[in-house]
């Protein structure tokens, strides 16, 4: 009956609006697998990237980051599984809403900085005159105003990489995917790029960036996805990642204090240093730093330093990747 059929389009459009809302994930990857010949690049990968956040896509070289990113962009197709980007299957043409900086950077050498940005924005549907205006704006804002008419071949590597980042965002995408954006940049430019990524988030965009330099991820990310050998080994927040490893407490006290006093709080490493000793304790058994401090106070034996160290993301990374590698070479499997 035609009358009954009517509400469906309405419902559908309501669903669409909901599909684009901030609370829904911006990227959903479900059971994705990709093989290149005999090599499995990505194996049964599933995760969500919530909208409006900065998400770090971490992993060692060859972990499958670039392959996953290319599948999200529909540059290559997964062998199994499904990917939803911005509420639609990634095969849907919605490239205007995505900005992508590939791992291998490069631009047309013979074009000027503003032309390249405007051209690439133009490919994403921005009118050329508007694209040129935005290119000039962006180049001014990020310190390349003097070079906007310089040909790419005459720019330094770092500069041209900055130009490429700007070209990635000139069409004001809702989702920005940056593959190793920090590689090849000096510390000053790395800082500029971090600022830029925060600017993007402030504007409401979702940012997914891959890196194997943990400091950037630590400073920027709301959410972290860690890959190793094509599999996901961690998916969660930064505090969540840190919680995977024990806190460490470093104390310096008189050498006369017996080190087994701290054994009940976790594993302790002792380094004697003349009349003093340095003790590092990886907390365990539900112990807290306060317990150690109390223990020290009780002894009253020359505590001269007390420090609590959160595990760094780097530690978590090494820990998780090492563990995964150990799994990967378990008996019964052959290492390639």
């Amino acid at each position: 009956m035609p009358v009954v059929a009517k509400p469906y389009p309405l419902l559908h459009s309501v669903a669409l609006v909901w599909g684009l809302s901030m609370s829904d994930p911006c990227i959903t990857v479900e059971g994705v697998m990709k093989r290149f010949g005999a090599y499995t690049a990505v194996d049964d990968l599933s995760f969500d990237v919530p909208a409006g956040i900065i998400c770090g896509f971490l992993g060692p070289n060859g972990a499958g980051k670039t392959t996953s990113v290319r599948m999200m962009l529909d540059i290559i197709r997964p062998d199994h599984g499904a990917i939803t980007v911005l509420g639609k299957p990634s095969t849907d043409q919605q490239r205007e809403r995505i900005g992508y900086l590939p791992e291998e950077k490069g631009l047309y050498k013979k074009m000027s900085a503003r032309e390249v940005i405007a051209y690439l924005a133009g490919l994403k549907g921005v009118a050329y005159s508007e694209a040129l205006r935005r290119a000039d704006d962006l180049l001014e804002r990020y310190g390349l105003g003097e070079n906007k008419r310089t040909k790419i071949e005459h720019l330094s590597r770092g500069m041209s990489q900055k130009v490429q980042v700007l070209a990635t965002i000139a069409h004001e995408p809702e989702l920005v995917i940056l593959d190793e954006p920090f590689s090849g940049l000096d510390p000053v430019n790395q800082q500029t790029l971090e600022d830029l990524i925060r600017d993007l988030k402030a504007r409401g965009a979702t940012i997914l960036f891959s890196t194997h330099v943990m400091q950037h991820a630590e400073r920027l990310c709301d959410h972290i996805i860690l890959l190793a050998r094509g599999r996901k080994v961690f998916d969660g927040t930064l505090p969540g990642a840190r919680a995977l490893l024990p806190q460490r407490v470093k104390i310096r006290c008189a050498a006369s204090v017996p080190s087994d006093r701290f054994a009940s709080f976790g594993s302790a490493t002792v380094t004697p240093d003349g009349p003093d000793q340095d003790i590092e304790i990886a907390l365990g058994n539900g112990a807290s730093p306060r317990d150690i401090l109390t223990a020290c106070m009780d002894s009253g034996s020359g505590l001269s330093n007390f420090a609590v160290e959160e595990p760094s993301l780097h530690d978590v990374f090494v820990h998780l990747v090492g563990q995964h590698d150990a799994v990967g070479t378990a008996p019964g499997e052959t290492q390639s």
Partner: peptide, 17 residues
Amino acid sequence: IEEKSNRVIEILMSSMS
């Protein structure tokens, strides 16, 4: 070949089929 060797190709591929 130029687009392949200067890697622009991947940006292009993310912008069009």
